[in-house]
């Protein structure tokens, strides 16, 4: 494994909240992608984190575009570079809302067309930019400003939607495992066609936990099996290290839930449903990896 480069493409002066894990992810994404890359960013926290005109917190070109439009805009850019014979990486860095809700049509279109790009969805499980309203990626039971009593429905299974497009490479990642993310971005960018990485990005103000717990929160998501780290190359599934152990013997879900204000007062019934979901997910992926379908 080559060492992670020292070069920084995301400067430390961003206007992210303290303890923001998504900006940490972006740092590693850019380190893996290197300078011959363009970021395409729909409306999201990253629109703000990058700073205010005429400043920028990044040393690669950043193309900001309308909320629903990132994958389509990246399609155009990728084709333009192809037409010019350029090898520049086109990377969408979009929030969960911009991916599973308003942007899903453009995402689906770009993957079906085989656009050569990397789409990264950093998932803080709500609309962070506008102050933490629910998104389709908000988990069951989580309180947001538009689900004050807890979200009554489950998290949209984005990965299975993307999987249905049969991309050459897709992976999940988590901000608490930056080296894993770095490697996945490297690998994705070495492959031609539409690539997808779904990164869980804990968010202190949204999930309501103290800022210093950001890494711990990501680790707990993985250790409890709530978030499973895997890769899928040309359809073939590989569960990654930290999740292998977690899937054999997941830590109690309460360890993850307890520290988050958004899950305060979840009913025992909801908690039970959450537990069942985690279990089902683990079983489904284990079966698939073992070749039993």
């Amino acid at each position: 494994m080559s060492a992670i480069p020292k070069e920084e493409y995301l400067y430390k002066c961003t206007s992210a909240c303290a303890g923001c894990s998504s900006s940490l992810c972006l740092r590693y994404v850019l380190k893996a992608a290197g300078p011959d890359s363009v970021l395409v960013i729909p409306a999201c926290c990253t629109s703000v984190i990058q700073g205010t005109y005429p400043g920028t917190a990044m040393s690669v070109p950043v193309y900001n575009v309308a909320f629903a439009a990132s994958a389509a805009c990246a399609s155009g850019m990728s084709e333009a570079f192809a037409a010019m014979g350029r090898e520049t990486n086109v990377i969408v860095y979009a929030g969960d809302g911009g991916t599973v809700d308003i942007g899903i049509q453009a995402l689906s279109g770009a993957f079906e067309r085989g656009t050569n790009f990397l789409y990264i969805c950093y998932d803080n499980e709500a609309y962070g930019n506008t102050g933490m309203q629910r998104s389709g990626a908000t988990p069951l039971g989580a309180r947001t400003t538009t689900t004050p009593g807890g979200k009554p429905t489950t998290k949209k299974d984005l990965d299975r939607i993307v999987e249905a497009h049969n991309p050459p490479y897709m992976a999940t990642a988590c901000s608490a495992y930056p080296l894993d993310l770095y490697k996945k971005v490297k690998k994705a960018l070495s492959i031609e066609g539409p690539k997808f990485i779904h990164v869980l990005a804990p968010c202190p103000p949204g999930w309501r936990y103290p800022t210093e717990k950001t890494v711990e929160m990501g680790k707990l998501a993985v250790k409890t099996g709530t978030w499973i780290l895997y890769e899928r190359e040309y359809g073939k599934l590989t569960i990654n290290g930290p999740s292998k152990a977690a899937m054999r013997k997941p830590a109690p879900l309460e360890d993850y839930i307890r520290g988050q204000g958004r899950f305060k007062n979840v009913s025992p019934e909801i908690l039970n449903l959450m537990r069942q979901q985690v279990q089902q997910n683990i079983e489904r992926l284990s079966r698939e990896e073992a070749g039993v379908c």
Partner: peptide, 12 residues
């Protein structure tokens, strides 16, 4: 409705 600054407070 769908949130967007500065309307979000209405939705919330």
């Amino acid at each position: 409705a769908y949130p967007i600054t500065p309307q979000t407070e209405i939705v919330e």
